[in-house]
Design a protein around this nucleic acid. Sequence first.
DNA 1: CTTTGCAAG
DNA 2: CTTGTAAAG
Lengths: 315, 315
Amino acid sequence: EMATDDSAVTLPTVQSEPWTMLAHKKPQKGWTAYNPRTMRPPPLAEGTKSVKLLSWNVNGLRALLKLEGFSVLQLAQRENFDVLCLQETKLQASIPEKDVESIKQCLLDGYENSFWTCSTSKLGYSGTAIISRIKPLSVTYGLGISDHDSEGRLVTAEFDSFFLLSCYVPNSGDGLRRLSYRITEWDPSLSSYVKELEKKKPVILTGDLNCAHQEIDIYNPAGNRRSAGFTDEERQSFGANFLSKGFVDTFRAQHRGVVGYTYWGYRHGGRKTNRGWRLDYFLVSESLADKFHDSYILPDVTGSDHSPIGLILKL
Amino acid sequence: EMATDDSAVTLPTVQSEPWTMLAHKKPQKGWTAYNPRTMRPPPLAEGTKSVKLLSWNVNGLRALLKLEGFSVLQLAQRENFDVLCLQETKLQASIPEKDVESIKQCLLDGYENSFWTCSTSKLGYSGTAIISRIKPLSVTYGLGISDHDSEGRLVTAEFDSFFLLSCYVPNSGDGLRRLSYRITEWDPSLSSYVKELEKKKPVILTGDLNCAHQEIDIYNPAGNRRSAGFTDEERQSFGANFLSKGFVDTFRAQHRGVVGYTYWGYRHGGRKTNRGWRLDYFLVSESLADKFHDSYILPDVTGSDHSPIGLILKL
DNA sequence: CTTTGCAAG
DNA sequence: CTTGTAAAG
């Protein structure tokens, strides 16, 4: 049975739905756990024009398709998305023939338009994509700055009423060896790029932005102050370069005080114990802030260390 | 039903026993396929003193134990061997704790004495072992020539009536890049080493000697004239350094005209189609040539690209 | 802990 | 095709 609203414990703790559990033994600060069963709004009225966007860091597309086979296709059918953004495809420019076949069958059936980047500097690393039912007006790859465009971290597709960016932000790495690149080069460059695009039309920036912005966005804030993705530097950069520049974190705007993770490291059996992070976002231009119907997470979709996230945008 | 001896086709071709099939569509030169069900002599009379030796190129011991779990232990119990020689353990000097546990449980239960070499020049490469119920008089590692002893290719155990060598001969490699090392350095050094030992007592040289000596020892002799393990150079070297120096190929001595493979490459589904090679041997000093009861192959033991081989020695 | 690519067989 | 490694997350 569903717990009542006035129950002392505000968190449902149904064993069979692990995504409903917080890692903290006791709920803190009145936070609640994100539950897609109860927290997603009812569907839009028939006839309301909308577009459904999905984003997923797949952590190696070939392994996902090998492991999961047609379950990716099932995801597509169940969710009936219009556009799917991928990160960490780990594909190379030359994909083995059998993998091409698998990708076509599992992922591109019904989606005529697909646009792929891959790292040219390091094989099988990074890589992003946009797969769409709707034909974009135009597509560009990277930031347009060759220093930052050898790792296949960005695809931009222009649609009628917005730009959509599928982005994989550089991880600051073990020992934070790449933190300074991230803070002083990548984040500001991406920020300038999106602000430039925004002069033309609204922007939707999605993907693995590799930052848990606030304490609510990570299972163990105190223990991760010097972990890549939760350093003060990255969190400040995320605020300064995106949120303070007018971009709206749609999940947080819709779900104040809700703990919704999108990533659970493989290293400590994170998914079972819900030791997660919220690293994946749909950020939107202010002008779209009241035009989205639902910003959601699909935590029960497995096959990667990240779960997919979704955004339903009213048109 | 068993085929009768006077049948026109001399080869049993029972589908459920693939090791009974020859790769050649038609039997050639009157060869027959090795069949452990019919070609092993009856057990020695009760009370006859004997020792049972086994040798196995395991192609990565950790993977074998992970894959097969306790079936290795079952092999030990079923075969009830006295000494097991391993090659290509691919262990490092520092074995992860969990692997140590697994090895102890699966492999060393009941075998007090075990002696291991590993490659110090290339991690997870090569590596040999002798695991014994009988305590050896002494054990030495390598050839005693530092140039050839960085790859963990040899363990020698001295028992009362013989030396036992577990050996993994260097593969000549793709493009035969290591053929000249093999022919001009390794083989002669090993030959000198065993001849030196033989001055003290008889020698049993076993392991993956990485040479299919004659056409009968390989499924496609014509197509492999320049393949590592069947070059003229390696075959001549094998003859000159070991057979012509008085060592007896026990399997061949016992089974003239019998096709008995011990290796089937993973690359072309070799085991299913019996596209095999005989690369694993028990070579013995001439003085032991009439003292062995059975030199055999266990082709139905899986888990590696090689099968184990065995030697029952009368004492 | 898992992905990728790589060397080796 | 499978085993190891390494770098990366």
